[in-house]
Design a binder for these strands. Structure first.
Lengths: 233, 233
DNA sequence: ACCTGAACACCGTTCAAGT
DNA sequence: ACCTGAACACCGTTCAAGT
Protein backbone atom coordinates (compact mmCIF):
# COMPACT_ATOMS: atom_id res chain seq x y z
CA UNK A 1 0.00 0.00 0.00
CA UNK A 2 1.27 3.44 -0.83
CA UNK A 3 1.38 5.71 2.19
CA UNK A 4 -1.74 7.82 2.53
CA UNK A 5 -1.46 11.02 0.55
CA UNK A 6 -1.67 13.96 2.94
CA UNK A 7 -4.72 16.20 2.64
CA UNK A 8 -4.27 18.84 -0.10
CA UNK A 9 -2.26 21.71 1.36
CA UNK A 10 -3.68 24.98 0.12
CA UNK A 11 -1.37 27.96 -0.04
CA UNK A 12 -1.59 29.19 3.52
CA UNK A 13 -3.87 32.09 4.32
CA UNK A 14 -2.45 35.50 5.02
CA UNK A 15 -3.88 38.97 5.53
CA UNK A 16 -3.28 39.98 1.94
CA UNK A 17 -4.99 36.94 0.46
CA UNK A 18 -7.95 37.52 2.79
CA UNK A 19 -8.21 41.21 1.85
CA UNK A 20 -7.98 40.64 -1.88
CA UNK A 21 -10.48 37.79 -1.75
CA UNK A 22 -12.85 40.11 0.12
CA UNK A 23 -12.44 42.81 -2.55
CA UNK A 24 -13.07 40.24 -5.29
CA UNK A 25 -16.15 38.94 -3.49
CA UNK A 26 -17.58 42.44 -3.03
CA UNK A 27 -16.81 43.28 -6.68
CA UNK A 28 -18.66 40.15 -7.77
CA UNK A 29 -21.63 40.10 -5.39
CA UNK A 30 -21.89 43.53 -3.81
CA UNK A 31 -21.22 44.94 -0.40
CA UNK A 32 -24.24 43.39 1.34
CA UNK A 33 -23.24 39.91 0.17
CA UNK A 34 -19.87 40.22 1.91
CA UNK A 35 -20.01 38.06 5.02
CA UNK A 36 -17.25 36.42 7.01
CA UNK A 37 -18.89 33.10 6.28
CA UNK A 38 -19.19 33.70 2.55
CA UNK A 39 -15.62 34.95 2.36
CA UNK A 40 -14.38 31.87 4.20
CA UNK A 41 -16.22 29.67 1.73
CA UNK A 42 -14.59 31.51 -1.19
CA UNK A 43 -11.23 30.77 0.34
CA UNK A 44 -12.09 27.10 0.97
CA UNK A 45 -11.74 27.55 4.68
CA UNK A 46 -13.87 27.52 7.80
CA UNK A 47 -15.08 30.99 9.00
CA UNK A 48 -12.93 30.96 12.11
CA UNK A 49 -9.72 30.64 10.07
CA UNK A 50 -10.17 34.28 8.99
CA UNK A 51 -9.89 35.52 12.55
CA UNK A 52 -6.19 34.69 12.65
CA UNK A 53 -5.60 37.35 9.99
CA UNK A 54 -8.17 40.04 10.69
CA UNK A 55 -9.36 40.82 14.19
CA UNK A 56 -12.99 41.16 13.12
CA UNK A 57 -15.19 42.31 10.28
CA UNK A 58 -14.54 46.00 10.95
CA UNK A 59 -10.82 45.46 10.48
CA UNK A 60 -11.54 43.52 7.31
CA UNK A 61 -13.45 46.51 5.92
CA UNK A 62 -10.62 48.85 6.91
CA UNK A 63 -8.19 46.62 5.07
CA UNK A 64 -10.40 46.60 1.98
CA UNK A 65 -10.50 50.40 2.02
CA UNK A 66 -6.72 50.52 1.99
CA UNK A 67 -6.58 48.09 -0.93
CA UNK A 68 -8.72 50.50 -2.94
CA UNK A 69 -6.80 53.58 -1.78
CA UNK A 70 -3.66 51.80 -2.96
CA UNK A 71 -5.08 51.83 -6.48
CA UNK A 72 -5.12 55.63 -6.63
CA UNK A 73 -2.34 56.86 -8.95
CA UNK A 74 0.57 58.79 -7.44
CA UNK A 75 0.31 62.59 -7.67
CA UNK A 76 1.55 64.40 -10.78
CA UNK A 77 4.56 66.55 -10.00
CA UNK A 78 4.88 70.19 -10.94
CA UNK A 79 1.25 70.97 -11.74
CA UNK A 80 -0.59 74.13 -10.71
CA UNK A 81 -2.36 73.50 -7.40
CA UNK A 82 -5.81 73.46 -8.95
CA UNK A 83 -4.81 70.90 -11.56
CA UNK A 84 -2.89 68.89 -8.96
CA UNK A 85 -5.94 68.66 -6.69
CA UNK A 86 -8.23 68.03 -9.63
CA UNK A 87 -6.02 65.24 -10.97
CA UNK A 88 -5.71 63.57 -7.60
CA UNK A 89 -9.48 63.60 -7.07
CA UNK A 90 -10.29 62.33 -10.56
CA UNK A 91 -7.82 59.48 -10.05
CA UNK A 92 -9.53 58.57 -6.78
CA UNK A 93 -12.80 58.64 -8.66
CA UNK A 94 -11.50 56.16 -11.23
CA UNK A 95 -10.40 53.79 -8.45
CA UNK A 96 -13.75 54.07 -6.68
CA UNK A 97 -15.69 53.53 -9.89
CA UNK A 98 -13.91 50.20 -10.36
CA UNK A 99 -15.41 49.04 -7.04
CA UNK A 100 -19.03 50.20 -6.76
CA UNK A 101 -19.26 49.10 -3.12
CA UNK A 102 -16.20 51.11 -2.08
CA UNK A 103 -17.86 54.47 -1.50
CA UNK A 104 -20.40 53.00 0.90
CA UNK A 105 -17.76 51.06 2.81
CA UNK A 106 -15.57 54.15 2.97
CA UNK A 107 -18.41 56.17 4.50
CA UNK A 108 -19.02 53.48 7.08
CA UNK A 109 -15.51 53.57 8.64
CA UNK A 110 -15.56 55.25 12.06
CA UNK A 111 -11.83 56.07 11.98
CA UNK A 112 -9.49 56.81 9.08
CA UNK A 113 -7.05 54.11 8.01
CA UNK A 114 -3.36 54.87 7.32
CA UNK A 115 -4.04 54.74 3.58
CA UNK A 116 -6.87 57.24 3.94
CA UNK A 117 -4.71 59.59 5.98
CA UNK A 118 -1.91 59.34 3.41
CA UNK A 119 -4.22 60.25 0.55
CA UNK A 120 -5.83 63.14 2.43
CA UNK A 121 -2.39 64.39 3.42
CA UNK A 122 -1.37 64.48 -0.24
CA UNK A 123 -4.47 66.43 -1.27
CA UNK A 124 -3.94 68.93 1.52
CA UNK A 125 -0.30 69.12 0.48
CA UNK A 126 -1.34 70.06 -3.04
CA UNK A 127 -3.40 72.98 -1.73
CA UNK A 128 -0.59 74.17 0.54
CA UNK A 129 2.00 73.89 -2.25
CA UNK A 130 -0.15 76.33 -4.21
CA UNK A 131 0.22 78.87 -1.42
CA UNK A 132 -3.23 78.49 0.13
CA UNK A 133 -3.36 79.20 3.86
CA UNK A 134 -3.93 76.42 6.36
CA UNK A 135 -7.17 78.18 7.25
CA UNK A 136 -8.56 78.27 3.71
CA UNK A 137 -7.31 74.75 2.98
CA UNK A 138 -9.09 73.45 6.06
CA UNK A 139 -12.39 74.90 4.92
CA UNK A 140 -11.77 73.78 1.34
CA UNK A 141 -11.36 70.18 2.51
CA UNK A 142 -14.61 70.35 4.45
CA UNK A 143 -16.40 71.92 1.50
CA UNK A 144 -15.19 69.14 -0.79
CA UNK A 145 -16.29 66.47 1.68
CA UNK A 146 -16.69 63.06 0.12
CA UNK A 147 -15.92 64.65 -3.23
CA UNK A 148 -12.22 64.29 -2.47
CA UNK A 149 -12.86 60.58 -3.03
CA UNK A 150 -14.50 61.21 -6.34
CA UNK A 151 -18.02 60.35 -5.34
CA UNK A 152 -21.12 62.14 -4.22
CA UNK A 153 -24.32 61.03 -2.63
CA UNK A 154 -26.92 60.99 -5.32
CA UNK A 155 -30.43 62.31 -4.78
CA UNK A 156 -32.27 60.91 -7.75
CA UNK A 157 -31.84 57.15 -7.82
CA UNK A 158 -31.95 55.76 -11.34
CA UNK A 159 -35.50 54.82 -12.31
CA UNK A 160 -35.98 51.10 -12.92
CA UNK A 161 -35.28 49.90 -16.47
CA UNK A 162 -38.87 48.87 -17.01
CA UNK A 163 -40.04 52.48 -16.56
CA UNK A 164 -42.67 53.52 -19.08
CA UNK A 165 -40.72 54.46 -22.21
CA UNK A 166 -43.75 56.07 -23.83
CA UNK A 167 -43.77 59.03 -21.44
CA UNK A 168 -42.81 62.42 -22.86
CA UNK A 169 -39.63 62.73 -20.78
CA UNK A 170 -38.05 61.49 -17.60
CA UNK A 171 -40.98 61.04 -15.25
CA UNK A 172 -44.24 59.10 -15.45
CA UNK A 173 -47.26 61.37 -15.83
CA UNK A 174 -48.71 60.88 -12.37
CA UNK A 175 -45.42 61.82 -10.72
CA UNK A 176 -44.89 64.72 -13.07
CA UNK A 177 -48.22 66.13 -11.92
CA UNK A 178 -47.42 65.74 -8.25
CA UNK A 179 -43.82 66.99 -8.46
CA UNK A 180 -43.84 69.56 -11.26
CA UNK A 181 -40.45 71.06 -10.46
CA UNK A 182 -38.72 67.69 -10.40
CA UNK A 183 -40.40 66.93 -13.71
CA UNK A 184 -39.05 70.16 -15.21
CA UNK A 185 -35.45 69.22 -14.50
CA UNK A 186 -35.92 65.49 -15.07
CA UNK A 187 -36.75 66.33 -18.67
CA UNK A 188 -33.31 67.91 -18.95
CA UNK A 189 -31.72 64.91 -17.30
CA UNK A 190 -33.43 62.50 -19.69
CA UNK A 191 -32.37 64.45 -22.77
CA UNK A 192 -28.65 64.14 -22.15
CA UNK A 193 -26.75 60.86 -22.25
CA UNK A 194 -25.70 59.50 -18.88
CA UNK A 195 -22.93 56.96 -18.66
CA UNK A 196 -24.98 53.90 -17.82
CA UNK A 197 -23.05 51.71 -15.42
CA UNK A 198 -20.12 53.91 -14.44
CA UNK A 199 -22.24 55.07 -11.58
CA UNK A 200 -21.54 55.26 -7.87
CA UNK A 201 -24.72 54.40 -6.02
CA UNK A 202 -26.92 54.56 -9.10
CA UNK A 203 -28.47 57.62 -10.64
CA UNK A 204 -26.93 60.33 -12.79
CA UNK A 205 -23.74 61.10 -10.94
CA UNK A 206 -21.90 60.98 -14.21
CA UNK A 207 -18.61 62.51 -15.12
CA UNK A 208 -20.14 65.77 -16.28
CA UNK A 209 -22.04 66.36 -13.05
CA UNK A 210 -19.04 65.46 -10.99
CA UNK A 211 -16.66 67.79 -12.77
CA UNK A 212 -19.24 70.60 -12.80
CA UNK A 213 -19.52 70.56 -9.03
CA UNK A 214 -15.80 70.01 -8.50
CA UNK A 215 -14.92 73.00 -10.64
CA UNK A 216 -17.61 75.12 -9.00
CA UNK A 217 -15.91 74.47 -5.66
CA UNK A 218 -12.32 74.79 -6.86
CA UNK A 219 -13.11 78.04 -8.70
CA UNK A 220 -14.79 79.42 -5.59
CA UNK A 221 -11.82 78.46 -3.47
CA UNK A 222 -9.41 80.03 -5.95
CA UNK A 223 -11.41 83.26 -5.85
CA UNK A 224 -11.27 83.34 -2.04
CA UNK A 225 -7.54 82.62 -2.17
CA UNK A 226 -6.90 85.53 -4.49
CA UNK A 227 -8.98 87.79 -2.25
CA UNK A 228 -6.84 86.80 0.74
CA UNK A 229 -9.90 85.40 2.53
CA UNK A 230 -9.65 84.35 6.19
CA UNK A 231 -12.31 82.86 8.40
CA UNK A 232 -11.60 85.53 11.01
CA UNK A 233 -12.50 88.43 8.76
CA UNK B 1 -66.46 34.14 41.45
CA UNK B 2 -66.10 37.30 39.39
CA UNK B 3 -65.76 36.63 35.70
CA UNK B 4 -62.15 36.45 34.56
CA UNK B 5 -60.79 39.88 33.66
CA UNK B 6 -59.83 39.91 29.99
CA UNK B 7 -56.10 40.28 29.20
CA UNK B 8 -55.02 43.98 29.20
CA UNK B 9 -55.93 45.48 25.82
CA UNK B 10 -53.12 47.73 24.66
CA UNK B 11 -54.01 50.52 22.28
CA UNK B 12 -53.93 48.68 18.98
CA UNK B 13 -50.87 48.97 16.80
CA UNK B 14 -50.95 51.06 13.67
CA UNK B 15 -48.41 52.22 11.14
CA UNK B 16 -47.95 55.58 12.81
CA UNK B 17 -47.32 54.12 16.26
CA UNK B 18 -44.80 51.69 14.76
CA UNK B 19 -42.99 54.45 12.88
CA UNK B 20 -42.79 56.83 15.82
CA UNK B 21 -41.65 54.06 18.17
CA UNK B 22 -38.92 53.22 15.66
CA UNK B 23 -37.79 56.86 15.53
CA UNK B 24 -37.75 57.00 19.33
CA UNK B 25 -35.76 53.77 19.54
CA UNK B 26 -33.18 54.98 17.01
CA UNK B 27 -32.96 58.34 18.82
CA UNK B 28 -32.32 56.52 22.09
CA UNK B 29 -30.04 53.67 20.99
CA UNK B 30 -28.75 54.50 17.53
CA UNK B 31 -29.38 53.22 14.06
CA UNK B 32 -27.53 49.92 14.45
CA UNK B 33 -29.60 49.03 17.54
CA UNK B 34 -32.81 49.30 15.54
CA UNK B 35 -34.05 45.76 14.92
CA UNK B 36 -37.52 44.47 14.23
CA UNK B 37 -37.22 42.33 17.34
CA UNK B 38 -36.08 45.21 19.55
CA UNK B 39 -38.79 47.47 18.18
CA UNK B 40 -41.43 44.80 18.84
CA UNK B 41 -40.20 44.51 22.42
CA UNK B 42 -40.47 48.29 22.87
CA UNK B 43 -44.07 48.08 21.74
CA UNK B 44 -44.82 45.12 24.01
CA UNK B 45 -45.60 42.92 21.07
CA UNK B 46 -44.21 39.89 19.30
CA UNK B 47 -41.94 40.66 16.27
CA UNK B 48 -44.43 39.30 13.75
CA UNK B 49 -47.10 41.78 14.84
CA UNK B 50 -45.10 44.54 13.13
CA UNK B 51 -45.47 42.91 9.74
CA UNK B 52 -49.16 43.77 9.64
CA UNK B 53 -48.20 47.46 9.52
CA UNK B 54 -44.96 47.59 7.57
CA UNK B 55 -44.16 45.11 4.81
CA UNK B 56 -40.55 44.67 5.93
CA UNK B 57 -37.65 46.50 7.47
CA UNK B 58 -36.90 48.48 4.32
CA UNK B 59 -40.40 49.92 4.37
CA UNK B 60 -39.98 50.71 8.05
CA UNK B 61 -36.86 52.74 7.26
CA UNK B 62 -38.67 54.53 4.43
CA UNK B 63 -41.43 55.43 6.86
CA UNK B 64 -38.93 56.73 9.40
CA UNK B 65 -37.36 58.94 6.72
CA UNK B 66 -40.74 60.48 6.00
CA UNK B 67 -41.32 61.13 9.69
CA UNK B 68 -38.11 63.18 9.76
CA UNK B 69 -38.85 64.93 6.47
CA UNK B 70 -42.19 65.90 8.01
CA UNK B 71 -40.29 67.85 10.65
CA UNK B 72 -38.77 70.22 8.09
CA UNK B 73 -40.43 73.63 8.36
CA UNK B 74 -42.59 74.87 5.47
CA UNK B 75 -40.84 77.20 3.01
CA UNK B 76 -40.73 80.94 3.68
CA UNK B 77 -42.77 82.83 1.12
CA UNK B 78 -41.48 85.77 -0.85
CA UNK B 79 -37.77 85.42 -0.22
CA UNK B 80 -35.05 85.88 -2.85
CA UNK B 81 -34.26 82.50 -4.39
CA UNK B 82 -30.88 82.23 -2.69
CA UNK B 83 -32.34 82.91 0.74
CA UNK B 84 -35.29 80.63 0.02
CA UNK B 85 -33.00 77.71 -0.87
CA UNK B 86 -30.67 78.52 2.00
CA UNK B 87 -33.51 78.64 4.51
CA UNK B 88 -35.02 75.40 3.30
CA UNK B 89 -31.67 73.60 3.55
CA UNK B 90 -30.84 74.97 6.98
CA UNK B 91 -34.26 73.87 8.22
CA UNK B 92 -33.62 70.38 6.88
CA UNK B 93 -30.29 70.48 8.70
CA UNK B 94 -31.99 71.30 12.00
CA UNK B 95 -34.38 68.36 11.55
CA UNK B 96 -31.54 65.98 10.70
CA UNK B 97 -29.44 67.17 13.64
CA UNK B 98 -32.26 66.20 16.00
CA UNK B 99 -31.92 62.60 14.77
CA UNK B 100 -28.25 61.69 14.40
CA UNK B 101 -29.06 58.39 12.68
CA UNK B 102 -31.24 60.03 10.03
CA UNK B 103 -28.52 61.00 7.55
CA UNK B 104 -27.19 57.45 7.36
CA UNK B 105 -30.67 55.97 6.95
CA UNK B 106 -31.46 58.55 4.29
CA UNK B 107 -28.38 57.60 2.29
CA UNK B 108 -29.31 53.94 2.51
CA UNK B 109 -32.70 54.26 0.77
CA UNK B 110 -32.58 52.84 -2.76
CA UNK B 111 -35.64 54.82 -3.91
CA UNK B 112 -36.99 58.20 -2.84
CA UNK B 113 -40.07 58.26 -0.61
CA UNK B 114 -43.00 60.62 -1.31
CA UNK B 115 -41.80 62.91 1.47
CA UNK B 116 -38.32 63.08 -0.03
CA UNK B 117 -39.73 63.88 -3.47
CA UNK B 118 -41.93 66.59 -1.99
CA UNK B 119 -39.01 68.27 -0.27
CA UNK B 120 -36.75 68.06 -3.31
CA UNK B 121 -39.55 69.43 -5.46
CA UNK B 122 -39.83 72.43 -3.17
CA UNK B 123 -36.09 73.15 -3.31
CA UNK B 124 -36.07 72.88 -7.09
CA UNK B 125 -39.14 75.12 -7.12
CA UNK B 126 -37.23 77.77 -5.16
CA UNK B 127 -34.47 77.81 -7.77
CA UNK B 128 -36.93 77.98 -10.65
CA UNK B 129 -38.92 80.78 -8.97
CA UNK B 130 -35.69 82.79 -8.97
CA UNK B 131 -35.52 82.51 -12.73
CA UNK B 132 -32.80 79.85 -12.95
CA UNK B 133 -33.06 77.63 -16.00
CA UNK B 134 -34.04 73.98 -15.69
CA UNK B 135 -30.56 73.18 -16.99
CA UNK B 136 -28.66 75.16 -14.36
CA UNK B 137 -31.04 74.05 -11.60
CA UNK B 138 -30.44 70.42 -12.51
CA UNK B 139 -26.69 70.82 -12.17
CA UNK B 140 -27.08 72.91 -9.03
CA UNK B 141 -29.04 70.09 -7.38
CA UNK B 142 -26.35 67.58 -8.27
CA UNK B 143 -23.64 69.91 -7.04
CA UNK B 144 -25.42 70.31 -3.71
CA UNK B 145 -25.88 66.56 -3.37
CA UNK B 146 -26.55 65.46 0.18
CA UNK B 147 -26.08 69.07 1.24
CA UNK B 148 -29.70 69.74 0.34
CA UNK B 149 -30.45 67.67 3.44
CA UNK B 150 -28.15 69.73 5.58
CA UNK B 151 -25.47 67.15 6.09
CA UNK B 152 -22.16 66.25 4.58
CA UNK B 153 -19.96 63.24 4.81
CA UNK B 154 -17.13 64.12 7.15
CA UNK B 155 -13.54 63.17 6.43
CA UNK B 156 -11.89 63.72 9.77
CA UNK B 157 -13.71 61.69 12.40
CA UNK B 158 -13.53 63.31 15.80
CA UNK B 159 -10.48 62.09 17.72
CA UNK B 160 -11.35 60.16 20.90
CA UNK B 161 -11.81 62.26 24.02
CA UNK B 162 -8.84 60.64 25.74
CA UNK B 163 -6.48 62.03 23.07
CA UNK B 164 -3.25 63.41 24.54
CA UNK B 165 -4.10 66.94 25.65
CA UNK B 166 -0.44 67.85 26.16
CA UNK B 167 0.30 67.86 22.44
CA UNK B 168 0.98 71.24 20.84
CA UNK B 169 -2.15 71.18 18.67
CA UNK B 170 -4.61 68.82 17.07
CA UNK B 171 -2.61 65.73 16.28
CA UNK B 172 -0.37 63.42 18.36
CA UNK B 173 3.33 63.87 17.54
CA UNK B 174 3.82 60.59 15.72
CA UNK B 175 0.91 61.27 13.39
CA UNK B 176 1.97 64.85 12.88
CA UNK B 177 5.34 63.59 11.64
CA UNK B 178 3.81 61.09 9.24
CA UNK B 179 1.07 63.37 7.92
CA UNK B 180 2.54 66.88 8.06
CA UNK B 181 -0.10 68.52 5.87
CA UNK B 182 -2.97 67.13 7.90
CA UNK B 183 -1.18 68.36 11.01
CA UNK B 184 -0.90 71.85 9.55
CA UNK B 185 -4.64 72.19 9.12
CA UNK B 186 -5.57 70.17 12.20
CA UNK B 187 -3.86 72.88 14.25
CA UNK B 188 -6.34 75.35 12.76
CA UNK B 189 -9.22 73.03 13.45
CA UNK B 190 -8.17 72.57 17.08
CA UNK B 191 -7.86 76.31 17.68
CA UNK B 192 -11.46 77.12 16.84
CA UNK B 193 -14.43 76.00 18.90
CA UNK B 194 -16.50 73.24 17.35
CA UNK B 195 -20.03 72.67 18.51
CA UNK B 196 -19.58 69.48 20.47
CA UNK B 197 -22.53 67.21 19.98
CA UNK B 198 -24.48 68.96 17.24
CA UNK B 199 -22.56 66.79 14.83
CA UNK B 200 -23.77 64.54 12.05
CA UNK B 201 -21.57 61.47 11.91
CA UNK B 202 -18.96 62.90 14.27
CA UNK B 203 -16.11 65.23 13.40
CA UNK B 204 -16.11 68.93 12.77
CA UNK B 205 -19.02 69.33 10.41
CA UNK B 206 -20.20 72.28 12.45
CA UNK B 207 -22.45 75.10 11.42
CA UNK B 208 -19.60 77.27 10.19
CA UNK B 209 -18.18 74.61 7.86
CA UNK B 210 -21.62 73.79 6.58
CA UNK B 211 -22.57 77.36 5.75
CA UNK B 212 -19.14 78.06 4.25
CA UNK B 213 -19.55 75.28 1.73
CA UNK B 214 -23.22 76.01 1.11
CA UNK B 215 -22.51 79.65 0.34
CA UNK B 216 -19.53 78.74 -1.84
CA UNK B 217 -21.88 76.64 -3.96
CA UNK B 218 -24.82 79.07 -3.98
CA UNK B 219 -22.54 81.99 -4.85
CA UNK B 220 -21.01 80.00 -7.69
CA UNK B 221 -24.43 79.06 -8.97
CA UNK B 222 -25.60 82.68 -8.76
CA UNK B 223 -22.54 83.76 -10.75
CA UNK B 224 -23.30 81.20 -13.47
CA UNK B 225 -26.94 82.28 -13.51
CA UNK B 226 -26.00 85.93 -14.06
CA UNK B 227 -23.62 84.90 -16.84
CA UNK B 228 -26.45 83.04 -18.58
CA UNK B 229 -24.52 79.77 -18.32
CA UNK B 230 -25.75 76.66 -20.15
CA UNK B 231 -24.27 73.16 -20.16
CA UNK B 232 -24.33 73.22 -23.97
CA UNK B 233 -21.98 76.18 -24.30
C1' DA C 1 1.37 27.81 14.32
C1' DC C 2 -2.48 27.29 12.13
C1' DC C 3 -6.93 25.51 11.43
C1' DT C 4 -11.47 23.24 13.02
C1' DG C 5 -16.35 22.02 15.20
C1' DA C 6 -19.67 23.11 17.98
C1' DA C 7 -21.97 26.51 20.24
C1' DC C 8 -23.87 31.30 21.59
C1' DA C 9 -26.49 35.22 20.94
C1' DC C 10 -28.25 37.45 17.65
C1' DC C 11 -30.77 38.81 12.78
C1' DG C 12 -35.21 39.30 9.19
C1' DT C 13 -38.86 36.68 7.69
C1' DT C 14 -42.20 32.43 6.61
C1' DC C 15 -45.97 29.72 7.78
C1' DA C 16 -49.73 27.73 10.03
C1' DA C 17 -52.31 28.39 13.93
C1' DG C 18 -54.90 30.74 17.51
C1' DT C 19 -58.64 34.24 19.35
C1' DA D 1 -58.99 41.32 11.89
C1' DC D 2 -55.31 41.07 14.46
C1' DC D 3 -51.84 38.81 16.96
C1' DT D 4 -48.91 34.57 18.24
C1' DG D 5 -45.30 30.44 18.42
C1' DA D 6 -42.34 27.84 16.33
C1' DA D 7 -39.29 27.41 12.80
C1' DC D 8 -35.93 28.60 8.83
C1' DA D 9 -31.93 30.41 7.00
C1' DC D 10 -28.94 33.37 8.01
C1' DC D 11 -25.27 36.63 10.87
C1' DG D 12 -20.46 37.74 13.75
C1' DT D 13 -17.89 35.78 17.19
C1' DT D 14 -16.34 32.68 21.47
C1' DC D 15 -14.16 28.77 23.20
C1' DA D 16 -11.90 24.53 23.62
C1' DA D 17 -10.02 21.20 20.90
C1' DG D 18 -7.42 19.12 17.14
C1' DT D 19 -3.02 18.50 14.04
Amino acid sequence: MAPQTPPPRRTPLNRDRVLHAAVALADRSGHEALSMRGLAQDLGVVPMALYKHVANKEQLLDGMVDVIVGEIEPPAAGAHWKNAVRGRILSARRALLRHPWASRVMESRPAPTPGVLGYLDSVIGAFRAGGLSADLTHHAMHALGSRVWGFTQDLFPAPPDDADAGEPAGLPGEMAARYPHIASIAAIAASRPHDGDSVVGGGCDDQFEFEFALDLLLDGIERLHRQGWTSAG
